[in-house]
Simulated assay, not measured.
Amino acid sequence: MKLIFSLFLAGFVLTVSGQVPDSTYRKAYNKAVVSLASADTTGLHATRQLLASAAVAAAFNHSLQGHLASASGDYELACKLFSQALQENDTLSDALLGRALASGKAGLFDQARADLNRLVEMRGADPYLFKLRGIAALEMVDYEAAVEDFKNGLLLAPSDAELNYLSALVRYKTDNYPEAYDNINKALTSDSLNAQYFYLRGSILMALEKNKDALADYNRALSLRPGYADALAMKGFLFYRTGDTDQALITLKLATDADPDFALPWFYTGLCQVEKELPSDALRSFDRASRLGYDDGDIFHYRGLAFIQLRRYDDACKSWKDAVLRGYRLSKALSRRYCQP
């Protein structure tokens, strides 16, 4: 499940509350420059007013350039431009929001949260800001803060499908499956054609051991989004868990074909191959998952089982040691059985 901070960036519309057109600011700026160049002391008061307008113009223009940089994918430049705008006008909420979004896209979630904190102080309770700040907290694995932000957002917008989905997601990640199930049902009530929502509900149902219902939701997600690799991976894992290893391998092959760079189905494929006593194939699948970034303790545990099938006991013991170091406790019992103390 790939959460990206830009989930709502595509729908962001540039609005600058209370601002007048850019051309007016440019004219003000030009007049200020002319007044200073001609040393028109009689027009000092007017010049100061024009300079104030010009300062606002500069902030606005830098903010606008920041949005253009974000639109082109240059988030580092966008952050610099928004910061420059805020140096010129530290109350320009448009620049704060722009920097928060660009920071999130650049992975600078601390900065994003700081800007969103300030926006909440300036604008008051706003479900959109709670949503964005909750996403930043979720990305930082600060689940407690994310739960609180999504809860506050839902108090203001109880039928918001995205807020209900995000609340379900963070509760799923914290193993609070009943509340996650309640939230995802509310999301689906508001948006019954969203493949991602059915995918998440399927995962919640599988965690609740309601495998038949979970399979139905994965199939519904795939009917709405054919080739949805996440749903295919979890559907394959569901088949593995229920003992249908052959169907699991067929489904996981569809997942890796749909997204060859997605690590999870390669790991699940390795599990199936260990189950079918195909250790060399399993090791190749585990290696592929590792190269793609999968580094949890369970992959080292099952790699050890594949080595045992090949009678490579030293390699198995090394893998189980790595698994234990990553917090996978089941490997301790096997280490005691097969490995020298």
Results as ranks from 00 to 15, higher is better:
K2M: 01
K2D: 03
L3D: 04
F8S: 05
F12K: 10
T15H: 09
V16P: 00
Q19M: 12
S23T: 13
S23D: 14
K31W: 02
S38V: 11
A39W: 05
A39F: 09
D40G: 01
T41G: 00
Q49G: 02
L50C: 02
L50F: 01
S53A: 05
V56I: 08
A58I: 04
N61L: 06
G66F: 00
L68Q: 08
S70A: 14
A71T: 09
D74V: 04
E76P: 01
F82E: 11
F82A: 12
Q84G: 06
Q84L: 11
D90Q: 14
A95K: 04
G98A: 14
A100I: 07
A100N: 03
G107R: 07
D115R: 13
R118I: 01
L119T: 12
L119K: 14
M122W: 03
P127A: 14
Y128S: 03
Y128K: 11
K131A: 09
I135Q: 04
I135G: 00
A136G: 05
L138E: 09
E139P: 00
E139S: 06
E139L: 08
D142C: 01
Y143P: 01
E144R: 12
V147N: 07
V147R: 13
E148C: 02
K151T: 13
K151F: 01
G153R: 03
L154A: 02
L156Q: 08
L156E: 04
S159E: 02
L163W: 03
N164E: 02
S167C: 07
N176R: 15
E179V: 13
A180K: 05
A180S: 12
I184A: 05
I184F: 03
N185A: 10
N185E: 13
K186D: 06
A187H: 11
T189L: 15
D191C: 08
L193H: 10
N194W: 06
A195Q: 09
G202Y: 05
I204Y: 04
K210L: 11
N211V: 13
N211F: 15
D213K: 13
D213E: 15
D217K: 10
S223R: 12
S223G: 06
S223C: 02
G227Y: 07
Y228F: 15
A233S: 15
G236W: 05
Y240P: 01
Y240G: 01
Y240R: 09
D244E: 12
L252F: 06
D259I: 01
G270S: 07
L271I: 03
C272N: 09
V274W: 02
E277W: 04
L278A: 05
D281R: 06
A282P: 00
F286Y: 10
F286D: 02
D287G: 04
A289H: 00
A289C: 02
G293D: 03
D296G: 14
G297P: 03
G297S: 07
D298L: 11
I299Q: 11
I299Y: 03
I299T: 10
F300P: 00
Y302N: 14
R303F: 07
G304I: 12
A306R: 05
F307A: 09
I308G: 05
L310N: 11
R312A: 08
D314W: 10
D314Q: 15
A316K: 10
K318I: 08
K318Q: 10
S319F: 06
A323W: 08
A323C: 07
V324D: 01
V324K: 08
Y328D: 06
R329G: 01
R337V: 00
R337I: 01
Q340L: 06
